[in-house]
Write a protein that binds this DNA or RNA. Structure first.
Lengths: 124, 124
DNA sequence: AAATTATATGCGTCATAACTAATATAAGTC
DNA sequence: GACTTATATTAGTTATGACGCATATAATTT
């Protein structure tokens, strides 16, 4: 099963970049504005070296654009479209996915997924 | 910067789940159909234990639904909406992001991101 | 109920990614 | 050119996640 038969594989690297909470916070701190790294450092309260580390990853994934203005380097989202897509996904998650706090816990009653015998079904 | 000030943080766990290529292949193998685990094993050529491992993670993230039918457990996507969102993101990636093959390599000329001095800009 | 098929789980190992500290580069100011 | 500010990089450490093996559970068939 290669990329041809599963084009979604293209999304893997992007998802990997977006999976890191601190990177999401950086994107959040950017919003629709362009901001210098210093601002991001203050907004996220992350150490400078760590912000720079994550910015590089975001940059190489094409998820932020960087441009120098004098001594500062401003970062911003490349495209409002991206923001819209992420927001629709966010909407889907909040309305459809299980409580995200449960993701890392075992649900004691295994109620998330009932594997008990029932033939009635809505798909397939 | 908590969830209130950055609701995108909710997406972190979902992205983490979607970042794994084999999980994307499993979703791909499912498509819009419901299929038993055996089918997924054959389609992906992954070892059973590995498929089961990934299915659990997908399940707990709410990205697939499971239902038993006799001896088989059928898995399927919970919602066509999800597929649509992922496809729009995929479209964005293919048209806007840098070549994904470059993501894991250092680009030798550093052409991905020009940090050279230029004051002209389109944002901020 | 024994055997078979379908699927899940626990554990150990290995690879990868995040983080820290120290240092380097690059631009601006005096 | 020396000094300061802004940002990036490198190396080392730690944490996390994927995978494989062995085994467990659950339903089906005989």
């Amino acid at each position: 099963m290669n990329r041809k038969s599963c084009p979604a594989l293209l999304l893997g690297p992007v998802f990997k970049v977006l999976a890191e909470p601190n990177r999401l916070r950086i994107l959040c701190a950017l919003g629709t504005e362009c901001r210098p790294v210093t601002d991001i450092i203050h907004a996220t309260a992350l150490p400078q070296t760590n912000v720079s580390f994550h910015l590089r990853i975001l940059r190489e994934a094409g998820l932020v654009r960087a441009e120098r203005r004098g001594a500062f380097i401003y970062y911003c989202l490349p495209d409002p479209e991206l923001l819209a897509i992420l927001q629709s996904l966010q909407l889907w998650v909040t309305s459809n996915a299980p409580s995200p706090d449960l993701l890392n816990r075992e649900d004691p009653n295994n109620e998330n997924v009932s594997l008990s015998n029932r033939r009635a079904n809505s798909c397939g």
